[in-house]
């Protein structure tokens, strides 16, 4: 796990974007997340790692209240975005999700054209006026998702006709077109081949200049390559959270060490 770039990666900004305090999640009687407290910094890639079923995806989905759509799911504790409690009664999850975008494990473009996929978010949030402005937004989102060159001549082709890696970049373009502040990524490269994965990872590093990125991954190498901060989850607990370099080189908890050296998980 000696990634050379780890040394270069200085966290530029230590402003806290999302602060989670003592978060508990229950699925019915099942206590899925126990006492998790994490402070996610702005303009930083934070990786959540851990074995399957450890609750990292569940916790990620708490950050934009996607768990609200799951029947029987209950979240306790306090999660703030820029100091505002996102589980406050007055918060509309729809507004929250416009500011905290999400990319899913399996590429899930809408069965519409590439253009319509990207334009959908700005359209429903009323972010643009007129066709010309929308064209610009679509173009810049696709450019930032490193997809523009491949699709600029077939924007009206269906998004489902792209390759897996292109579809996932389309989903990222769709998410960033709504100008979110935080981008949540749930194993964004797990369904992709190594080349597409490399493209996505490169993209994540670029996205960091504009957003806070939180990525859930099964691949420790991926976490080491793309993130500045890493959180290790195990059986619903947050075991360790710190600088990526420190987690992978000198883990403090024996469970973290076991996991990153491949003894558990």
């Amino acid at each position: 796990m000696n990634d050379m770039r780890l040394e270069e990666r200085i966290v530029q900004n230590d402003k806290i974007k999302i602060d989670a305090q003592d978060v508990q999640v229950f699925y019915g009687d099942n206590h899925a997340i126990k006492d998790v407290s994490v402070a996610i910094e702005d303009k930083t890639v934070t990786a959540f790692i851990g074995p399957s079923g450890c609750g990292k995806s569940t916790f990620l989905r708490c950050l934009n209240r996607m768990n609200d759509t799951v029947a029987g799911c209950r979240v306790e504790g306090r999660i703030t975005l820029d100091g505002e409690d996102i589980y406050d009664k007055r918060v509309d999850p729809v507004q929250l999700r416009a500011r905290v975008g999400m990319v899913f494990q399996k590429p899930n473009p809408f069965p519409k054209s590439i253009y319509d996929n990207v334009a959908y978010g700005p359209k429903i949030h009323g972010l643009v006026r007129g066709k010309a402005e929308m064209d610009e937004v679509v173009e810049s989102a696709l450019k930032r998702a490193a997809l523009w060159k491949e699709v600029k001549d077939r924007l009206q082709a269906p998004g489902t006709g792209l390759s897996g890696g292109q579809q996932q970049r389309l989903c990222i373009a769709r998410a960033i077109a709504t100008a979110p502040e935080v981008l949540l990524m749930d194993e964004p490269a797990s369904a992709l081949d190594p080349i597409a994965t490399a493209q996505i990872e490169e993209l994540i590093d670029e996205l960091r200049t504009r957003f806070a990125v939180v990525i859930v991954t099964h691949s420790m190498q991926q976490a080491a390559r793309v993130s500045q901060k890493t959180a290790f989850f195990h059986l619903g607990n947050l075991v360790e959270y710190g600088e990526t370099g420190q987690i992978f080189t000198t883990p403090r908890d024996p469970r973290t060490e076991s996991y990153i050296t491949g003894r558990i998980g």
Binding site: Q95, R97, A98, M102, F104, N108, Y120, A175
Partner: peptide
């Protein structure tokens, strides 16, 4: 597929928008 619903909700569509669109 639920992924379509997730996709719409994930970029901030309301429930009724996700269903009707």
């Amino acid at each position: 597929p639920p992924s379509i619903r997730d996709a719409a909700l994930g970029i901030g569509a309301s429930k009724i928008q996700a269903i009707f669109h």
